[in-house]
Write a protein that binds this DNA or RNA. Structure first.
Length: 853
RNA sequence: GCCCGGGUGGCGGAACGGCAUACGCAGGGGACUUAAAAUCCCCUGGGGGAAACCCCAUGCAGGUUCGAGUCCUGCCCCGGGCACCA
C-alpha cells in the first residue's frame, strides 16, 4: 500500500502535522551515530574493568521480524545497562543469536532456501530492528551459535562431558514428534504435545545421546537457595521439575525368576499393606516374559495397545486405569506373602523403576485399580481421629501402623525408619532419594545443529573425534526432506571419517545437538567471543560472572535456565569456572498482548515496531513500552497509549528548545542559589522526583519512573504557567536533572537535549543524579486530621512540630470540632509529620438515616 | 488435586499499615482556527445536595488495628506452573 506523500514531508507524524513537534528522526540518527563513533558500549579489556556489571538479554532465535512484545525485553535490558553505566559501572551488554534450530530447516524444506542463508538474512533484519530501538550492544562481541567458530566449542563441550562420563548413548523410550520428525527432550513436551508445533507426541524405542543431568539433580536443587534474586516462581518451577522425593527402594523377589522386582516408594510405612504389584508396559519384566513366550495373549495385546497410544491420551489423569495380570507372583520381602504382578497404564516407566507396590488402602490410584479388579485391600495406617480408611476411598495421610505384625503401634515416621531398617538387614531394600528429573536427551535427527563429534569404527566402536579435529563442519550439500532421518545421511563425504584409534575408515555420527546445548554456555563466550584456542577465557569469566542481571521470558524458566545451570556446574567441577551459578539476578518480563492474545502471525495481531518508530520515533516506543505496566506482568498493547508518550516527549522538547534560547542561564544555574516561594517549591518537587525515580529504576519499576518524569515535566510547565520563567536557575537545574533521568529511557532525545544544554560529553557518560537534601527540606508540612479514622481536614504546620502542639492544633481545627461536637474524646493518635487521628467514644444511637423513597 | 501470581474508575495502572484512584489513555466542555488537525485550559469513581458538604466504593464474608487496597482467617473468580511422580 502506497504511503501518504505528506508523511515524508512532516518530521513528526504520518498525517499532515503542523504545530509543535520534535525532531525525533534527526535526534535518533545523530545520537546513534555518536554512540557508535565514540564506542560508548564497547568493552575493550575485560580484565581492566573495576566496577563491573554484566547485563544480559536472552539471545534471540533469529526467526525474522521482531514485534513490540519482543521489544520489551531489549528495551528493559538497554535501560538497565544505561542506568548502571551512569551509576559508574563498566557495563558489558552483548548480543548474539541462538541461530541453530528447526524453523530454518523447515524453511529450507518449504522454500528451497538453505538454512544458513535464511538465518543470515533474519539476523541482518533483526539486528537492524534492535538498533532502531536504540538498544546499544557491544557488537564487537556478537556471536551466532551456527558459526563454526562457535559450534566448534559446543562440540568441544560435548567431548568434555563425554570424557567425564556425562554424555552417553542409550536405548530408551523417547518422545517423538511426527511433524518435526525428531526426538524431543522431556522438557520440550508440553501436555503430551510438541512445544514447537503442538503435534501430539508419540513414543519410540530409539538409541539416543543423553547428558547426565540427573547426576546434578541434587546440586541443582540445593543451589536454588543461592538464587535469592530470582523470581520465586521460577525457583519453584525448577524445584518441581527436579522433583525430589525421599523414600525407599525395595526389592520383591519374583517366584521362579532370578531378578527381583525393584520398586520405589515414598511410603515404606505402608509396606505391610501391599497387596499386589504393578509394572509399566515398557518394564523390562514385560519384555523378558514376551521373549520367553510366557506373556498371555491378553497381556501382549494390552501392552501393544498402550505403546501405540498417543502420549497425551495415555498419560492424562482422566484416563481409566486398566490392567492385565502377568501371571507372575512377587514375594513380599517381609511377610513372604505372594502378590500378583499386573501391568497397567497408570504406572509410568519414566519415574522411579517403572514398577510399584500397590497399597490400595492408602493410595487412591491403587485403590481405584483394586476396586476395579477386585484385588484385596488391607488397612495398615490408622490415625487416632477421622478421617481414616473407610473402604470408600484411600486414606493417604499418616497415622499409627496396624495389621503390620511387629511394626504395629508405631507412628508413620517411626514405621518408615523401622521398616527400612528391617529391609536393609534382609538385603531387600534401603532408604533412597528419587528424582523426577530425567537425563537430557540431546541428539536430534536434524541438519541445522552442531554435529555430535563422534565416529563409529567397525573394530573400535564408538570413538570421540579428537579435539584437534574440531569443528566437525556441517556440510552445505544435503537434501532437505522430512523423512525422519538426519539430512546428513544424504552426504556421503560427510559420513566418511577415520577412526582416531586405528586410522581406519569409520562412519560419522549424523545426529546433531539440541539447540539448548548451544544456548547453555553462550554467556561465557561473550567474554572472549573471538578466541580460537578455547571455548571461553576462564580468568575473564571468573571476573565477570555470574551475570549480574539476566533478562528474558518466563517460558525459559525450566529448559534454558536449568540446562545452563547444569553446564556451569559441570564446568565448575572441571575447574573451568570458579562459580556455582551462571545468573545472579533473573528478571522475567511479562508478555505484551494485543486484543487479549499473545501476538502471533497466525492470529494477525502482531504490532510491528517499524511503522511506530517511523511515525513517533524510537524513544516514544521505548517510553510507552516501559510505561505500559509493571514489567514483570503481562500487559495489553494500546496504540492510543503510544500517543501519550509522544505528547510527553514533545512537551519535554519544547522546554529544551525554549530553555536553551538563552544560554547565559546555564551559568547562573551553576551558581548557588536559595530561591523561595514557587522556585523553592519547584526545586523540592524536582528533587523528590529524583529520589523516587532512582528508587523506581533500581527496583525495575520503570512504569512509575516514566510517570515520575512526566510529573517532573508537568511541574516545570506548571511553574511556567504560574508566571515562572523558563530562563531561570531553578529550571536550569530541573532540566539538567530531567535530562539525565530520561537518558536511559529515551536516550536519543536526552542525548540531543544534553548537547543543547552545552555538554561536550555524551549523556551516556553523565553521572546519575543525586537529590539535594537541602532542596528536599521544607519549613511547612501538611498534617492530615482524622476523626475516628476518617479524613476530615488538613492543616499546614511547621516541620518538626511537637506532638502536643500537633494534638492541640488538631483539636482546635473547626472542621474537626464539628465532628467531635458533644462527643467524649477517647484517644488522640499523633503520627509525627503525617496525621492526627482523634478517636471519640461512639454515641450509642445510630446516625440519622435518610428514609428510602 | 497441589504450588505460584492476580482481582482497585470506562481502560492501562499508582499507593513504607496513615489523604485510595498518582501518571497516562479514552470521554465531556472550552480557547485558538474560515474549518479541521495539532496545541493549550477545565471537568471526569458512584450516589445525594443549589452549595458548603455528606454518604458509599479496592472480588465476597469476617477479624486484628486509633486507622486496612495493604496484615490474618474462610470463600469466589481469573491467569500461570506441576500432575496417575508411586
Amino acid at each position: 500500500m502506497p504511503e501518504s506523500r505528506q508523511g515524508e514531508e512532516t518530521r513528526g507524524r504520518g498525517e499532515a502535522t503542523r504545530g509543535p513537534s520534535y525532531p525525533f528522526r534527526e535526534l535518533s540518527e545523530r545520537a546513534q551515530e555518536r554512540w557508535r563513533k565514540e564506542r560508548l558500549f564497547e568493552l575493550d579489556d575485560p580484565m581492566a574493568a573495576d566496577r563491573r556489571f554484566y547485563c544480559l538479554n536472552m539471545f534471540p532465535y533469529p526467526s525474522g521480524d521482531l514485534h513490540v512484545g519482543h521489544g520489551r525485553n531489549y528495551i528493559l535490558g538497554d535501560a538497565v545497562a544505561r542506568v548502571k553505566k551512569m551509576q559508574g559501572y563498566t557495563v558489558l551488554a552483548p548480543m548474539g543469536w541462538d541461530a541453530f534450530g528447526l524453523p530454518a530447516e523447515n524453511a529450507a524444506i518449504a522454500n528451497q532456501i538453505h538454512p544458513a542463508v535464511w538465518t543470515k538474512k533474519n539476523i541482518a533484519r533483526m539486528k537492524t530492528q534492535l538498533q532502531a530501538w536504540g538498544a546499544m550492544y557491544d557488537w564487537n562481541r556478537e556471536i551466532a551459535s551456527c558459526d563454526p567458530a562457535y559450534y566448534k566449542w559446543t562440540q568441544w563441550i560435548f567431548l568434555q562431558l563425554y570424557k567425564r562420563g556425562l554424555a552417553h548413548r542409550a536405548m530408551g523410550t523417547v518422545n517423538w514428534c511426527p511433524t518435526d520428525q525428531t526426538v524431543l527432550a522431556n522438557e520440550q513436551v508440553v501436555d503430551g504435545r510438541c512445544e514447537r508445533c503442538d503435534t501430539p507426541v508419540e513414543t519410540r524405542e530409539l538409541e539416543q545421546w543423553y547428558f547426565k543431568i540427573t547426576a546434578y539433580a541434587d546440586a541443582l536443587l540445593r543451589d536454588l537457595a543461592l538464587l535469592e534474586h530470582w523470581p520465586e516462581k521460577v525457583r519453584v518451577m525448577q524445584a518441581n521439575w527436579i522433583g525430589r522425593s525421599e523414600g525407599a527402594s525395595v526389592r520383591f523377589p519374583l517366584a521362579g525368576r532370578d531378578a527381583p522386582l525393584e520398586i520405589f516408594t515414598t511410603r515404606p510405612d505402608t509396606l505391610m499393606g501391599a497387596t499386589f504389584m504393578v509394572v509399566a508396559a515398557e518394564h523390562p519384566l514385560v519384555a523378558a516374559l514376551a521373549a520367553e513366550g510366557r506373556l498371555s495373549p491378553d497381556a501382549a495385546r494390552f501392552v501393544e495397545r498402550l505403546k501405540r497410544a498417543r502420549v497425551e491420551d495415555r498419560f492424562a489423569v482422566e484416563t481409566e486405569k486398566e490392567g492385565v495380570p502377568l501371571g507372575v507372583s512377587a514375594i513380599h520381602p517381609l511377610s513372604g506373602a505372594k502378590l500378583p504382578v499386573w501391568v497397567s497404564n497408570y504406572v509410568l516407566m519414566g519415574y522411579g523403576t517403572g514398577a510399584i507396590m500397590a497399597v490400595p488402602a492408602h493410595d487412591q490410584r491403587d485403590f481405584e485399580f483394586a476396586t476395579t479388579y477386585r484385588l484385596p485391600i488391607v488397612e495398615v495406617i490408622r490415625p487416632d481421629q477421622e478421617p481414616r480408611f473407610d473402604g470408600k476411598a484411600a486414606y493417604e495421610g499418616e497415622g499409627g501402623l496396624v495389621n503390620s505384625g511387629r511394626f504395629d503401634g508405631l507412628a508413620s515416621g517411626e514405621g518408615k525408619r523401622a521398616i527400612v531398617q528391617a529391609l536393609e538387614k534382609e538385603g531387600k531394600g534401603e532408604a533412597r532419594v528419587n528424582y523426577r528429573l530425567r537425563d537430557w536427551l540431546i541428539s536430534r535427527q536434524r541438519y541445522w545443529g552442531a554435529p555430535i563429534p563422534m565416529v563409529t569404527c567397525p573394530t573400535h566402536g564408538m570413538q570421540p573425534v579428537p579435539e584437534s579435529e574440531l569443528p566437525v563442519l556441517l556440510p552445505d550439500q544435503v537434501e532437505f526432506k522430512p523423512t525422519g532421518e538426519s539430512p546428513l545421511l544424504s552426504n556421503e563425504a560427510f559420513l566418511r571419517a577415520t577412526c582416531p584409534k586405528c586410522g581406519g575408515p569409520a562412519r560419522r555420527e549424523t545426529d546433531t545437538m539440541d539447540t539448548f546445548v548451544d544456548s547453555s554456555w553462550y554467556f561465557l563466550r561473550f567474554l572472549s567471543p573471538k578466541a580460537e584456542d578455547r571455548a571461553f577465557d576462564t580468568d575473564a569469566v571468573n571476573r565477570w560472572l555470574p551475570v549480574n542481571q539476566y533478562i528474558g521470558g518466563v517460558e525459559h524458566a525450566i529448559l534454558h535456565l536449568l540446562y545452563s545451570r547444569f553446564i556451569v556446574k559441570v564446568f565448575q567441577d572441571a575447574g573451568l569456572v570458579a562459580f556455582p551459578e551462571p545468573f545472579e539476578r533473573l528478571f522475567t518480563q511479562g508478555m505484551i498482548t494485543k486484543d487479549g492474545a499473545k501476538m502471533s502471525k497466525s492470529k494477525g495481531n502482531v504490532v510491528p515496531p517499524d511503522t511506530l518508530i517511523e511515525r513517533y520515533g524510537a524513544d516514544t516506543v521505548r517510553l510507552y513500552t516501559l510505561f505500559i505496566g509493571p514489567p514483570e506482568k503481562d500487559a495489553e498493547w494500546n496504540d492510543r497509549g503510544v500517543e501519550g508518550a509522544y505528547r510527553f516527549l514533545t512537551r519535554y522538547w519544547r522546554i529544551i528548545e525554549e530553555f536553551t534560547a538563552t544560554k547565559e542561564v546555564m551559568a547562573t544555574g551553576k551558581r548557588p542559589f536559595a530561591p523561595s516561594g514557587p522556585a523553592r517549591d519547584l526545586r523540592r518537587r524536582v528533587h523528590q522526583l529524583v529520589l523516587q525515580i532512582t528508587d523506581d529504576v533500581d527496583r525495575f519499576h520503570f512504569n512509575t519512573a516514566v510517570s515520575g518524569l512526566m510529573q517532573m515535566v508537568n511541574a516545570i510547565l506548571d511553574y511556567e504557567a504560574a508566571g515562572g520563567s523558563l530562563q531561570s536557575p531553578e529550571v536550569a537545574e530541573a532540566v539538567d536533572l530531567a535530562t539525565r533521568l530520561l537518558a536511559p529511557l529515551a536516550p536519543h532525545t536526552a542525548e540531543g537535549a544534553w548537547d543543547r544544554l552545552g555538554h561536550p560529553q555524551s549523556v551516556v557518560t553523565a553521572p546519575w543524579p543525586q537529590p539535594d537534601r537541602a532542596a528536599l527540606h521544607s519549613d511547612l508540612q501538611s498534617l492530615v486530621l482524622q476523626v475516628n479514622g476518617k479524613v476530615r481536614s488538613q492543616i499546614e504546620v511547621a516541620v518538626g512540630i511537637e506532638q502536643e502542639a500537633a494534638r492541640a492544633a488538631a483539636l482546635a481545627d473547626p472542621r474537626v470540632q464539628r465532628f467531635i461536637d458533644g462527643e467524649e474524646i477517647a484517644q488522640v493518635i499523633v503520627v509525627p509529620g503525617r496525621l492526627v487521628n482523634v478517636v471519640t467514644r461512639r454515641r450509642p444511637q445510630p446516625k440519622p438515616h435518610q428514609p428510602k423513597p
